[in-house]
Amino acid sequence: MIEARDLGVSRGGLPVLTGLSFTLGAGEALILRGPNGSGKTTLLRTLAGLQPPLHGELICDLDEIAYGAHADGLKPTLTVAENLQFWAKVFGVVTITPALAALDLQALRDRPAGGLSAGQKRRLSLARLMVTGRRVWVLDEPTVSLDGTSVALFAAMVQGHLNSGGAAIMATHIDLGVAGRVLDLAPFRATSAAYVADEGGFL
């Protein structure tokens, strides 16, 4: 569903990753590992189509990808249901009930999102993935501020998604218990030689 060949990505005009190749098929999960600043977010934003790759080939259907950013993207004055309903309408999905159920948000349904705790906001933000109806989830640090119970809920949600033929690629440091390959980004770190090659003759 996603295929990257010799992919390079850049952040703020500096290459961060080069020579990255991987494939992701239906039912598979890919977990990105790497220290801070290793380019996880940049790679995920590139996969989501928010920025063009520096070089290499990226074969994926942008209409299949649901991007889950580091930020929650919630509106504090809208209720939990309204926040979710909005994205459901944008993506043309009919019901938000399964999404609420998957992350145990039914009881919070009519609370304004601004009054939720950080973990509850995170759960709401993750529930959004269920109302996109898209098959490839691209997730940036999805488990930040989640407690043990919520991580288990999230892991079950991801597993269910994979079992129904979806795929997921995520940057995370904890072990979710979801079967998936781990991709360490450290070997693909861009060197200054890659920088010289991309700097259009200024060096």
Partner: peptide
């Protein structure tokens, strides 16, 4: 660009 290259190196 030179400064950035040095920093990367």
């Amino acid at each position: 660009a030179l400064i950035a290259r040095e920093r990367m190196a």
